[in-house]
Design a protein around this nucleic acid. Structure first.
Lengths: 226, 226
DNA sequence: GTCTATATCGGGATAGAC
DNA sequence: GTCTATCCCGATATAGAC
């Protein structure tokens, strides 16, 4: 009757299939890993794998959800280690990349369908909405008392902007073939600095007309993710 | 012996298969259209379709190349109609979207693999390099005598930046389900205005430190496409 | 060189027996 | 809840007609 023993056999099999899939994705890439191989590696029949995950995509989604869950304490610890908007923005994204480092091929499978909002695996779809919201909350958090004066009108939109920046970094990282993805590390560093710099500039009266345009631009983009 | 009659039967069949494929992509989406259907619609055997195009991806690539070719005069005319950086940037991208309007599903097939630089269909791959270069030349052109004073150090990087902006707009457009993609139209309008505004600001001494950071950022990103 | 016909294979997905 | 058998499709290969 202990909580630990609630993990039924069913749950365990599902997890075993997920683990087998992740390992194969790493070895063979998303397309290279077949459902037959995944099932075989997990010690079940192909049909059984489909009983647990209605599609190969569903496995990726499950991985994404599990990752999000596992990353929460990691992110919390990372943000406790540093202060200021620039450093925290950088760290928030950096720990995610670090966590995903082994599974770049899996993430590629996820991002592939980003341009199709109806696709369940799109980072903008309704299926991934809860994950997106958890993410957004972190960006919201690092904007509070961050040491940078932020114009009132810009404030409500910034979490989404930072989230979009994160997506851009991840996209770049997936395509980055430099050793240890060092180019992405540099990109993240400079990107965080640029964003913080732009935010500081945005407070100046001189930039007001442009800020109004940019604000409207953000509003249009934001509409997309609902 | 006339030049018009050089279009051999082979060329025509290839074109017929391409047209059949495009129509099916529009009706069924990229994944929904099968090679069997495409061949049947073109009135040839499956093997013949493979004789002309080694894979379904190859059809998309052929479409991409044909589009690029057909669009050259359209772009030229569009740029002749208007002046100034903001208007020309907007028009340059707008006519492309207009041209691709019927084939959004096909473009989705193309963009899907953007995160994998080794994939032949990635917009960053070597297979699509010549298309990319033709594109870049247009962005280079609209930057000349555009009426906006551009800092010397920024200048050589701007074509790539504008090209990346274009890719972002296209990506948004592919996911945009609003009527007639009206949101994308607005996005393009505001985006062009924001970029022009930022460029104007970038000339001010005040923005110099930030400009240096942004410059380095661009350099990192640019390295990717070679 | 251009194409048909056909056979075969591997992989995603499903139905139905157990 | 699990497995077997099966279907469909993309892709490849080949033999041969024209």
């Amino acid at each position: 009757m202990t909580a630990a023993k609630i993990t039924s056999k069913s749950e365990e099999t599902g997890r075993r299939i997920l683990d087998a899939a992740l390992e194969l994705f790493r070895e063979e890439g998303f397309d290279g890993a077949t459902m037959r191989d995944i099932a075989a590696k997990a010690g079940v029949a192909t049909g059984a794998a489909y009983y647990y995950y209605p599609s190969k995509d569903a496995i990726v989604l499950a991985f994404y959800e599990l990752s999000c869950q596992e990353m929460q304490p990691i992110i919390e610890a990372a943000l406790a280690r540093c202060g200021g908007l620039e450093a925290r923005l950088r760290e928030l994204i950096r720990v995610k990349l670090e966590y995903f480092a082994r599974n770049r091929a899996v993430l590629r499978g996820l991002v592939k369908n980003g341009a199709d909002p109806n696709h369940p695996l799109s980072p903008f779809s309704s299926e991934t909405k809860s994950i997106r919201e958890i993410d957004l909350a972190w960006f919201q958090k690092i904007l509070i008392d961050c040491g940078v004066r932020i114009p009132r009108d810009l404030e409500p939109y910034l979490p989404e902007v930072l989230w979009l920046f994160q997506m851009g970094v991840i996209y770049f990282w997936l395509a980055d073939e430099s050793r240890g993805q060092s180019r992405t590390a540099r990109l993240l560093e400079l990107g965080a600095k640029t964003i913080t710099g732009l935010l500081k500039l945005s407070g100046l009266p001189l930039t007001r007309p442009l800020r109004k345009v940019a604000l409207e631009l953000i509003e249009i983009v934001k509409g997309e993710a609902q």
